[in-house]
Design a protein around this nucleic acid. Structure first.
Length: 558
DNA sequence: TCTGATGCGTC
DNA sequence: GTCGGAC
DNA sequence: GTCCGACGACGCATCAGA
């Protein structure tokens, strides 16, 4: 039996190592020593995930329930915990410190291993937390958590807190675990990876590797109604660079919607999202349409679901979200916001796996089995090596209201879960905005003790008032992060938990992908994918961009 | 019965 | 989704 | 090239508490 304490010890050791090879080695050694039932869950725990995606279980615990549980277990108030979080810069360290400083009370785990939690007990209780629902469920979740924290040593609490928040921060992700499983059980990383594509569960793969080795891993096949991880695209600096990379390419429109994977067998159909959640019911109109237009007994298809207005113009991404995870009012919304499905790949048809076939071959099959309808079509594609021609497709896509293009290598197989150079996306660069910094958040983890997230405002034309348009937190180097923190510190007006209000004197140049309507920000607009470009030392707040400029930019791309 | 906060998925 | 940093 | 972690906005479901 493995105790949670042992897991915590390993995590602490790993956290102190920077070499990924050495980390892999540690993980492999740990995995090898586990019993089978533990092996099914520990690979995920090390990554800070509790449940495999396909299980569809969620903890439903975030910072606020964590505070509630820690309050009971440690005697600290939620407010004190928030201050402690800022001080420690990490939820794990916060929990650890809160327990360390708690009023003395019974602490079983301090007196030997007999009272300590086992890994499986912790997992079991986390599952109960996930399954709690209905009236009083938050109270139950908190009670379970409180029990765990009360039975924990401070070190265990560090990793327990991070685990429930879904962030272990020890440098172990899918890649490391994949290699560690390979190393632990004498199989190749490629074999582990392949089995992982089809099962979506590294715990299951680890058990399989232990019991049956390479042979077992190679037997894993794509299964109908068990979604597989989707292939992703990499950003290319431009069309010419992308074409240079691949020569002749399949150039496809990049639709701004949500990724879906369709599994059909006879009259049965299921639609899955990118994270392998089932979304058949909210998209039942799409499902019905698909049942009528696929000429195959069984098929697994890949595509993008896009929102349209009734006149046939694609709508902003926000509208897809209104359909996507909906449980109520589906009928009403399907009329308001029709969804169109563009299929661009096919991974399995009539018992035949296709992922190892070339894109050219898969596309041919796709075109054969799809009869286009008002709801379903095959994604637009032009095969070319000519920059002008590709550029024409690009502008066509943008004019039609889409995101850009994807260039795909015709000879490439479908590689689930990978973001490789076989698929390259090209999107336009937007003009930047100069915005006033009016607040900031203290960071966590490697950003602890830095002001790392900045609240931005534009200027209301008539009044000169500052109106928030969102936050930016990426695009800075570590060096800039330190400089900016020093620059902003003297401007702090007030502080509450990790939030800091600032005198509005600094201006940041910010890049973004798109301007959205926002129901949340006072300006009525927000930036999609904002990133920091530079500090505008040369600009005073009065010279920052105005609301009317933002309105113009928004209107230009509608 | 309604509203606001929270959690979690999409990008 | 974006980005920077480590390897 | 690949992996990892630290972060962005939005919309829906859920639950607690008024």
């Amino acid at each position: 039996m493995t105790t949670f304490h042992e897991l915590a010890i390993v995590c602490e050791r790993i956290e102190s190592i920077s070499s990924s090879l050495a980390i892999t080695q540690e993980v492999a050694t740990f995995l090898r020593a586990l019993e089978e039932s533990e092996l099914a869950v520990c690979p995920l725990l090390l990554m800070g995930t509790v449940f495999a995606e396909w299980r569809g279980l969620e903890l439903g615990v975030g910072k606020s329930l964590l505070y509630a549980a820690l309050s009971s277990a440690s005697g600290w108030s939620a407010r004190q915990l928030d201050e402690l979080l800022r001080e420690m810069g990490d939820v794990g360290r916060m929990a650890e410190e809160a327990l360390r400083r708690r009023a003395q009370r019974t602490l079983l785990s301090a007196f030997g291993d007999d009272g300590g939690l086992s890994v499986l007990e912790v997992y079991d209780i986390l599952e109960r937390i996930a399954r709690a629902e209905g009236r009083g469920s938050q109270g139950q979740k908190v009670q379970h958590l409180e029990y765990l924290f009360s039975s924990c040593s401070p070190l265990e609490a560090r990793y327990l807190a991070r685990l429930v928040m879904g962030e272990m921060r020890i440098g172990v992700g899918e890649g490391i675990v994949r290699d560690a499983i390979a190393q632990a059980f004498g199989v190749s990383s490629e074999e582990v990876e392949r089995a992982y594509m089809f099962t979506g569960d590294l715990g299951e793969v680890a058990v399989l590797a232990m019991r049956k080795g390479s042979e077992g891993l190679r037997e894993v096949r794509i299964r109908l109604f068990r979604p597989i991880r989707v292939m992703l695209a990499q950003i290319a600096p431009g069309i010419s660079a992308a074409l240079e990379e691949m020569g002749e390419a399949a150039v496809e429109w990049k639709y701004d919607g949500a990724r879906v994977q369709v599994h059909i067998q006879g009259s049965e159909i299921r639609i899955f999202s990118r994270r392998l959640e089932e979304v058949t019911h909210p998209l039942r109109d799409v499902a019905e349409a698909l049942l009528g237009c696929i000429d195959a007994r069984e098929a697994v298809l890949d595509g993008e679901a896009v929102a349209y207005d009734p006149s046939g113009r694609p709508r902003a991404f926000q509208y897809v979200l209104r359909r996507f995870r909906r449980k109520y009012g589906i009928e009403k919304k399907r009329k308001e916001i029709p969804i169109h499905l563009f299929l661009f790949d096919c991974l399995h048809v009539d018992g035949k796996p296709l992922i190892d076939e070339s894109l050219r071959e898969r596309r041919r099959t796709l075109e054969q089995i799809v009869r286009e309808s008002g709801v379903v079509s095959v994604a637009k594609q032009v095969i070319t090596s000519d920059e002008e021609e590709a550029s024409a497709v690009y502008h066509e896509a943008l004019d039609a209201g889409h995101e850009g293009i994807i260039l795909k290598k015709l000879s490439s197989p479908y590689i689930p879960g990978r973001r490789g150079k076989h698929w390259l996306k090209v999107k336009p660069l937007m003009e930047t905005l100069d915005l006033v910094v009016v607040g900031a958040d203290w960071g966590e983890g490697k950003r602890a003790h830095f002001l790392s997230s900045y609240y931005l405002a534009c200027i209301e034309d008539d009044t000169g008032r500052l109106l928030e348009v969102g936050k930016v937190a990426t695009g800075t180097t570590e060096e800039q992060l330190a400089e900016i923190t020093e620059m902003l510190k003297p401007l702090i007006i007030s502080q509450e938990g990790t939030y800091v209000r600032l005198e509005p004197v600094k201006v940041f140049e910010v890049a973004y992908e798109e301007i959205q309507r926002s129901p949340n920000y006072p300006s009525g607009y927000a930036l999609r994918f904002p990133r920091f470009v530079r500090v505008r030392e040369d600009k005073s707040p009065a010279e920052a961009d105005t609301l009317s400029r933002i309105e113009e930019l928004y209107a230009r791309f509608q």
